[in-house]
Each structure stands twice: as structure tokens, then as C-alpha cells.
Design a protein around this nucleic acid. Structure first.
Lengths: 177, 177
DNA sequence: CCCGTCGTTGACTGACCAGTCAATCCGGGA
DNA sequence: TCCCGGATTGACTGGTCAGTCAACGACGGG
């Protein structure tokens, strides 16, 4: 045998387990109604361990959001760098967001419902990160306008808001059947 | 003098005062962070009086939402009944929603942020009422498609979601500067 | 003028839950 | 084999707050 089986999982695994459990718990009951003990139970872990890996319940949600949003931002930047038509870029981004939802509806639900839309608490804390996505999308629109592919009637920023808003609303519609 | 001044305001006034104060309080701190005592203080009214007029803190928010949403539904229905182009109907509806915001930003903020977007709690309770608006908008689209004014590429329901989603996102953008 | 009704008051209670911490466990190095 | 340090446990605490309730006060009718 190359290596003895690990009785105790590596620390990183427990941390991951807690994050994954939090997604399920938050999606099931919502962030506010969900107790830290729900997360611990879902992860089959002691209550206190959550506080070993995270400073607070908020930090758990923050971590989930940032992790996922960074993936989205990277995808948008990457898509923008490709040599394809602006319309196809936007199509690819919309498809990616929808795929995120298809791949992990619970996580997407948590991010949309608990972070994006909790404007007074988490949204406020992540405004800058969220705005980055709008800026990137806006830049795609601006470039397309400059080269004459898109009409100039609408400001890039407004277009980006409407673009993302439409997608999010459709996802919200799916989330609730 | 036609009538002696009322020392004690009519009951309905106190109820209204509480509702108006709740708008301010909810807008300032968010529904969850806002204590019932904040509402009472804002209304210059004793804590217990809130519970004389409303069964719970939730009911206060519910009342605010239903009041306002009914106005919106009536406006949409009324607009649809007019003999104008479908595009103008949608324009009028978008303008009305934006006017609601301009006229009373705090109330609109509360409704969007705390109800529409609190999908696990209030949104869930008002899903049907919210869906009514989508249905009405969808019908406008469907009629326009039937008469050939709008393209048929997009389902009316999807169009309605995207239409409202775009508006809401723009308002959300305004709400947070 | 007194009494009943209902609007009004705000101190109090009971429940809930985030976060703490002292104790325990486990693997590995000496 | 014995420690050491980090992982893990879960009972406990402190504070918060929604909702209750007993008492008070103003008006109107008898």
C-alpha cells in the first residue's frame, strides 16, 4: 500500500464540506432563517468547527459569493478577449450564467437571492465586485458601439444593467418554478 | 369655528403614520435589522400600538407591498385597455414604475429590496401577486405578436420577465447610486 | 357626572441563536 | 513511548428583540 488511509480528512476538506453544506442550508431556509447549527448538521461537523474555519456566519456566505463571482468575472474577461462578434460574446456570457444555474442551482439561488438581492447587507459589502461585472459587460457594449456593430442609443452602463437584470429575473423565475 | 380641533387624531391616521414610518425605517436599515421599536419611534407612537394595528412586523411590510402593488396592477390593466400601440403600452408601464421610484424612492426601495428580492420569505408569500404583473405584461406581448406588431421569437412570459427584470435592475442601480 | 369602550402606553418575558471556550482527540516527531 | 500542537467537540453565555399584557387616559352616551 502506497499510503495508509487518512482517518482524519485533511483540514481543507472539512472547510470545503462546511462551505458545501452552507450552500444547501442557505438554499433550503434562506440565510437569515438558517442557523449556524443547521450548517454544522448538514456538514456532519460540530458546531464550533464552523468558527474554526470562519470568523462568522457572514464570512461563510461572503466566501461562497466571492469564490463564485471570481469565476464569473474570469469567464467574462476571457470571453471578451476572444475574437468573436460582440453579440456572440454577450450570448456566451448569458449562456455561462445560465449554465452556472443549471450546474448548481442551490449555489446560484443563494448568490442571487441572499447576496445580489440583499442590498442592505451583503450586496452593500460586495457592491464593488458586482459592479466589476457590469463594467466588463459595459465595455463589450462600448467597443461594439465604437466599431458600429451596436446602436448608440443606449449607454453601455444602462445596457449592461438591463442585460444582467433580464438574465437574473429569468433565473429568479426558474428558482421559484 | 366650524369644528373643534381634534386632540386625538383619528385612528386611521395613526395606522397611516405607522405605515409611513415603517417605510422610512425599513428603507434606512433594512427589514431584518429594523426593530419594531424603530418603527414606533419614527412614528412617534408607543411600541405596543404597532401591535394594535398590525398582527406582526411582517404584516406591516405585507401591507405596504400589497397597497403599492395593487396600484401598479391597476395601472397596467388600465394602460392595456387603452387603444395605443403595444410598444407605447410597455413604454408607459416602464415610465410608471420609474415614476413610482421618483415619487417615493424609500417605498420603492423597500418593495424591491425587501419583498421582490426576499424570495425565501416575503417574495414567497406574494408570488401570486407578483406573477399577476408578469401575466398582464405577457398578455400585452402576446396580443402584439398575434397582430404581427412584435416578433414571435420570444415567448410572452419570457419577454415579461426580461422586461421587468431590466427595469428592476436599473432601479436597483439607482438605489445604490 | 359617571361609566364603558377603545385607543394608547411601555415595561416585561420568553425564545432564540451567534459566538466563546475549556476540554478532548489524534497524528506525528523526538 | 511520550509529548506537542492543531483539529474537533458541544455545552454554555450574553444580548437581542418580537410579541404580550396590565394599566392608563380620552371621549361619548346615558
Amino acid at each position: 500500500m502506497p499510503s495508509a488511509p487518512q482517518i482524519r480528512p485533511a483540514p481543507a476538506d472539512k472547510r470545503r464540506m462546511i462551505l458545501d453544506a452552507a450552500v444547501v442550508a442557505f438554499a433550503k431556509r434562506g440565510f437569515h432563517a438558517c442557523r449556524v447549527s443547521d450548517i454544522a448538521d448538514e456538514a456532519n461537523v460540530a458546531y464550533g468547527l464552523v468558527y474554526h474555519y470562519f470568523r462568522s456566519k457572514d464570512e461563510v456566505l461572503d466566501t461562497l459569493f466571492v469564490e463564485r463571482w471570481n469565476v464569473l468575472l474570469a469567464f467574462i474577461a476571457e470571453t471578451d478577449a476572444q475574437r468573436i462578434a460582440p453579440r456572440d460574446k454577450l450570448y456566451a456570457i448569458a449562456a455561462a450564467i445560465i449554465d452556472f444555474y443549471r450546474y448548481d442551482p442551490a449555489l446560484m439561488k443563494v448568490i442571487i437571492v441572499e447576496v445580489m438581492r440583499s442590498a442592505n447587507t451583503f450586496g452593500l459589502r460586495h457592491v464593488d465586485k458586482i459592479a466589476e461585472a457590469y463594467v466588463l459587460i459595459g465595455e463589450i457594449v462600448a467597443k461594439a458601439q465604437a466599431e458600429g456593430t451596436f446602436k448608440r442609443e443606449v449607454s453601455p452602463r444602462f445596457a449592461a444593467l438591463a442585460f444582467y437584470g433580464a438574465i437574473e429575473q429569468v433565473l429568479t423565475g426558474w428558482i421559484f418554478g
